[in-house]
Amino acid sequence: MVKEAHSSIISGVLFGAGAGVFWGLVFLAPELVPEFTSLQLVVGRFLAYGVISLILAIPKWSYLKKTISLSEIRTLLCLALLGNTLYYTLLSNAVKLGGIALTSLILGFLPVTVSIIGSRDAEAIALRRLWPSLSFCIAGAFCIGAQALTTRSGHPVTGLFLALGALASWTAYAVGNSRALSRLPHLSVHDWNLLTGLATGFQAVLLIPIVVFTTRNAHPFNEWMQFSLVAIGVALAASIIGNALWNRMSRLLPLTMVGQMILFETLFALIYGFLWEKRWPHPLEIMAFIALVASVFSCVRSHHRHLSS
């Protein structure tokens, strides 16, 4: 039993790392289509996510209709809002108004908030055993923020509240999604991801009128083509593949570890950023990278010891 639990932890961490590989690509999307607004990118990405999910769900639609209830549909709509539509809207606007430093510092507390909630679960590891891991996580967040302090912002207070909103939104999603998956063992993680995609796509459709009425800039055909390719690419990589890996991880790991796995997104976003900017990391960025890696390994070690005790 203990051996199986250790194996689940290792597999879960690998799935979490895989999700980070694909989720980290999201941070490159605004750089690839700078002519478009954050809301346009949100709608484009999640509309593509919804369409792809619909295409993949059609062959098994009769089965999916029988396996989900009205209560689960409400859960899907809520999770789609918290983890996709609302979170990404708050995040992208927090970066624009509050700057990278402020946003990264606030969101660096995601593993802390999720772990604190997870520590209240039955048979969960005691929170005091996770403080070394959480301390590394906080140190990494401060290193990232300190490096980006030169980023100027005209609306720091608004940016702060948006970042706090994003933190609360994704914390609620991580906890709710993990617990929903544990309640629905009859649904595969792939099917759950497709259903989440349908819910997210529905919300993206509702946002289209807002985009139309708030956007004044016209774009040439070649810019729309590039935007479409980026939206579809991010939807496939981050939303279809990345979310599927994350859901698989959520079924294998306790909630006290789930929050830590979001650090892989930060790690790979840093790597992609260095490659995009064609530069080596600065000293503080290296320190942040080391601290985040140490946080994950420390978390895994604490859970291994908890299982063995």
Rank of each mutant, 00 (worst) to 15 (best):
F109H: 07
L270W: 06
I68A: 05
P185L: 04
N247T: 00
G176D: 10
S308P: 07
V258F: 05
F142W: 07
I138H: 03
Y87S: 09
V211S: 10
K278S: 14
A5G: 00
A126H: 11
T214P: 03
L245M: 14
V13M: 08
G140K: 08
L41I: 11
A235H: 02
P30K: 03
S135D: 00
P209V: 06
H306P: 02
F289Q: 06
K278R: 13
S71T: 08
V51Y: 07
L82A: 10
A148P: 02
S178P: 03
T196C: 05
F22P: 00
A57Y: 01
P281C: 02
I144C: 08
I241M: 07
G12I: 05
S92W: 12
R74Q: 09
I58C: 05
G197Q: 03
L90D: 07
I68Y: 08
L110Y: 10
E72N: 09
L127M: 11
T214H: 11
H155I: 02
P283G: 13
I125P: 01
H303P: 03
G159T: 00
A269T: 15
A29T: 08
T171Y: 12
W276E: 06
S119Y: 02
F202D: 05
A80Y: 01
L292Y: 14
M261H: 11
R128M: 05
G259H: 10
I117A: 10
